[in-house]
Structures are given as C-alpha cells and as structure tokens.
C-alpha cells in the first residue's frame, strides 16, 4: 500500500512542485536589469546542476559501499549507484543544454572552451560512457565492480567543476562570491523552490529507475531457475 502510494504520489508531487516553481520563475521573480528575461533560465539551470551533482555524489557513495561490502549482498548499493548516475546524467544534460541557450544571447556564442564549460563537457562524456558501459558488460558482477571504481573516479569532476570558477580565470557567473550571494531575496526564494522541485523530480525518477533494475534482476533469476 505504501509502495503504491509512493509510486503514484512522488510523480504527482514532482509535477505540482515543478508547476509551482515555474509560476515563481515567470510571475514572482523580478526581471533582471542587465540580462532581461533570459536570466530566468538561471533558476532551473542552477537547480538542475546542483541536483545532477547530488546524483553523482549518490553514485559515488553507492559505488564506495558496494566495493567496501564486496559483491555479495551489496547489489542494492550497485542499483542505487547505477540509477543515480542515469538520472544525474539527465539533469546535467539539461544544465549543459540550457547553459548554451543562456550563453548565446548573453555571451554572443553558444559555447566557449573556458574551464567550467570544458569540465562540464568532460563530465557529461564520462557519465554517458558510464551508462553505456553498464549496458554492455556481459559479466554482471565484474561489470558492477568495474563500474563502481569508474563511478568513484568520475565523481572527481564534481568538485573540479565547483571550484573551476574559483580557481581559474573564467567568464562563467558566480552565485557565491566572498561569502555573499549575488541575487535578491525574491530571486533566492525562486531558486530554492526550483531546487526543491528538481530534488523531488530526482527522487521520483531515481525510484522508478531502481524498480526497473530490481525487475530486471527478478527476470534474470526467473530465467536462471528455468534453465
């Protein structure tokens, strides 16, 4: 009963919070003076980046626990790592695409090979490779071990991306500068609601993706029992 409620409730809740966040972005948040309406991309762009990073952190933790516990009895952590990488990749894909759509009217070009964007491109490719790798390895146990090591190594792109705009000369805007936020309180409220919306969406997608993997395990076990 509780599982059925979560199956239905989480997706419905994610749609409601997503609509509320969209309403705040377009009706509540003030129009930014320099960039105009194109600045409204920022709220969902930042929220999807943070949730994508969180997704990769979950993959990192799931992979570490899987390796620490050994293959036996740790399949749940492997499923968590795999599902979170796929969902996190969707969020980072949104971040990269909408970043390009913001950059064109503001910078005059869709893409510049500056540190933050270069690391984002490398990160996106690494996690695309992770998802493709998971689908192509024949030996599930060895594949899961290899993917766990890969998931830990690929996570290094998250702190690199976070600090890229602080360590190197870059034209990417900084939200936090010298301990202060570069936005007004209504903008901050809109960003926080957007962050909640994307977190609920992440949880709904993660849950569905984990259920898929468990059902695949049931199918594999049923086939093995038949043979």
């Amino acid at each position: 009963m509780r599982a059925k409620l979560a199956d239905f409730g989480l997706p419905v809740l994610s749609v409601i919070v997503f609509l509320a966040a969209s309403g705040m972005v377009f009706l509540y948040a003030p129009r930014e003076v320099t960039m105009g309406d194109v600045q409204r991309i920022f709220y969902f762009h930042v929220a999807s980046a943070w949730v994508g990073f969180f997704g990769f952190l979950v993959t990192f933790c799931g992979s570490a626990v899987y390796l620490a516990r050994g293959a036996h009895g740790a399949r749940a952590w492997d499923i968590l790592a795999l599902a979170s990488a796929e969902v996190g990749l969707a969020f980072i894909t949104m971040t990269v695409l909408t970043g390009m759509l913001w950059a064109k009217p503001v910078w005059g070009v869709y893409w510049i090979w500056e540190p933050r964007l270069t690391i984002s491109a490398v990160q996106w490719l690494l996690y695309v490779a992770y998802v493709m790798l998971r689908g192509s390895l024949d030996n599930p146990e060895r594949g899961a071990r290899f993917a766990a090591v890969y998931g830990i190594a690929a996570f290094m792109t998250v702190p690199l991306s976070w600090f890229a705009i602080r360590w190197w000369r870059t034209i990417h805007p900084q939200l936090f500068s010298g301990g202060e936020m570069a936005i007004t309180p209504p903008m901050l409220a809109t960003l926080l609601v957007s962050l909640i919306a994307f977190t609920v969406l992440y949880m709904a997608l993660l849950r569905a993706r984990m259920q898929l993997e468990r059902e695949r395990d049931h199918l594999a076990a049923a086939r093995a029992a038949k043979e």
Partner: peptide, 21 residues
C-alpha cells in the same frame, strides 16, 4: 531573447519527461 527562454524551458520539460517515459 524570449525564444531562448522558451527553448530552455522546453528542455527542462522534455528531458525528465523523456527519461520517465
């Protein structure tokens, strides 16, 4: 300018919906 906002929000709707499907 508005076209970039519309395109960006189409991406925000299409990617999670596509993954869910």
């Amino acid at each position: 300018m508005a076209i970039y906002v519309v395109l960006a929000y189409s991406v925000f709707c299409a990617v999670p919906f596509g993954l869910a499907l």
